[in-house]
Design a protein around this nucleic acid. Structure first.
Lengths: 248, 248
DNA sequence: TTAAAAATGTTTAAATTTGTTCGAAGATAC
DNA sequence: GTATCTTCGAACAAATTTAAACATTTTTAA
């Protein structure tokens, strides 16, 4: 059974059961616990399910938690390590773009005291920075509930009015071939931000490296620098393509 | 039972009960007091509940202290009476503007199930409606912390791209002489909204009628209809100027 | 066809969660 | 004010869950 088929079945089972544990899933799908765990972790990072101890829950059950908050909780240490490095690149007076990714969101904690202007399409970023030293501009357009962000043609048009010194953006996958996104919405917003910034940083934890999602939307040259959490065998080919890489 | 499931149940129980004690929770969820305490502490640190001695209570019962929320709490009954009337004016398919006033904010509760598009510069309005039937567009521009809203030249420019069937707006004062605002920011945003809507409703509780704030920014003719909470001696002169007035 | 990469299984040490106990801090009654 | 009762959280232990490391198999691409 392929991992795709397995993940599909997991969602079906979860639809019926609300919650389910690793051992049951492993038995039902006749595979090992470890494989189920890997599946669940991946699905949780995509916001498809909520990871619990020993299993998973349907999304939407936790009243006050959005898909976005669940995404943020995944791989938190790696995200913070990346953001700590990213924050060192930001100097007082910078005008920076921040997109609506869960990694970029964590950057908020490291820049609260900097004297900068932040331009973002992410509502959680606004909420985090509204009481900080940074001044915040919000991109306008359609509100996307799942991503807690602003998207759409109007948003892209709006971005074109700004110019930033640095952009901090995420993607769903990166390989030596280029950059990948799960939806066109995200792809075009990323392109719009990148086009209006002098220097573009890709914040990307190591699980996304060498992962090709369904839509290839740009070449590696869109970014100047990749910040990630650890060296992996997949990095050298990317480095060879001319992307500067920052590691902890 | 996982901690996530337990926390979900705690929120459900709290939704019904407003407040609840540790012992009851421990019994209901068949676990120990200590585990419940750990759950409650974690949930409180995330802002999901409010921790009390011996238990927990719902959030939202205690006064949250942003300037905006305090404004909302003033004269609540009058505001709700006004908004109930305003909601009757809104039909499925409408595209409406809502500004960042505290009266207009209360309109959210009355339109959650309507099939409309809402265009606003108010962050609290977005937060209220993000899980509703209405689709939401947000105006882009500078984030104003005190008003929890978007302002500035970019915002006004952005508004000019939209056209609404109805606008629901507030002011800081109204007299037979015209409309008054406390800041130029608010004045220009109000003008920008009004200019791009076919029909403009002024939502204004009776304390603001016949009050002249520092800046007169428009004549009464900017609005077609005034919705307020009670008849006062100041109303007839305004009615005489051609403004339609709706009362409970 | 072969080599490289990805996915999966196994083992094991680390991390997380939970229950129990107990002294300290907090509330309540008098 | 004191005495009493309750609640709290720290510390520890037991059980469970997790993820890292490595071996093996399968898939993919050259």
């Amino acid at each position: 059974m392929t991992s795709q088929k397995r993940q599909q079945k997991i969602i079906e089972l979860l639809d019926r059961n609300e919650e389910i544990d690793v051992a049951t899933l492993a038995e039902q799908l006749s595979t090992s616990d470890m494989t189920i765990r890997r599946d669940l972790n991946r699905m949780a990072s995509e916001g498809l399910i909520i990871r619990t101890h020993g299993g998973a829950m349907k999304t939407g059950l936790l009243v006050n938690k959005t898909a976005f908050e669940n995404k943020v909780a995944v791989n938190l240490d790696a995200k913070d390590a990346i953001c700590r490095l990213a924050a060192q690149e930001i100097k007082d007076g910078d005008i920076i773009f921040m997109d609506c990714g869960s990694t970029v969101f964590r950057l908020c904690n490291f820049i609260r005291n900097k004297n900068i202007k932040v331009i973002t399409n992410s509502l959680p970023v606004v909420a985090q920075l509204i009481n900080s030293a940074a001044s915040v501009n919000l991109i306008g357009g359609e509100v996307d509930r799942d991503r807690q962000a602003i998207h759409g043609a109007m948003a892209e048009q709006h971005i074109a009015h700004y110019t930033a010194t640095k952009a901090f953006l995420g993607v769903d996958g990166i390989s030596p071939d280029g950059l990948f996104a799960n939806t066109e919405k995200e792809a075009s917003i990323t392109r719009a931000f990148a086009a209006r910034s002098k220097k573009n940083y890709l914040l990307c934890d190591s699980t996304k490296i060498n992962k090709e999602a369904y839509l290839k939307f740009a070449g590696l040259s869109l970014f100047h620098t990749l910040i990630t959490d650890k060296e992996t065998p997949s990095l050298p080919p990317i480095r060879k393509k001319g992307l500067k890489i920052i590691l902890p």
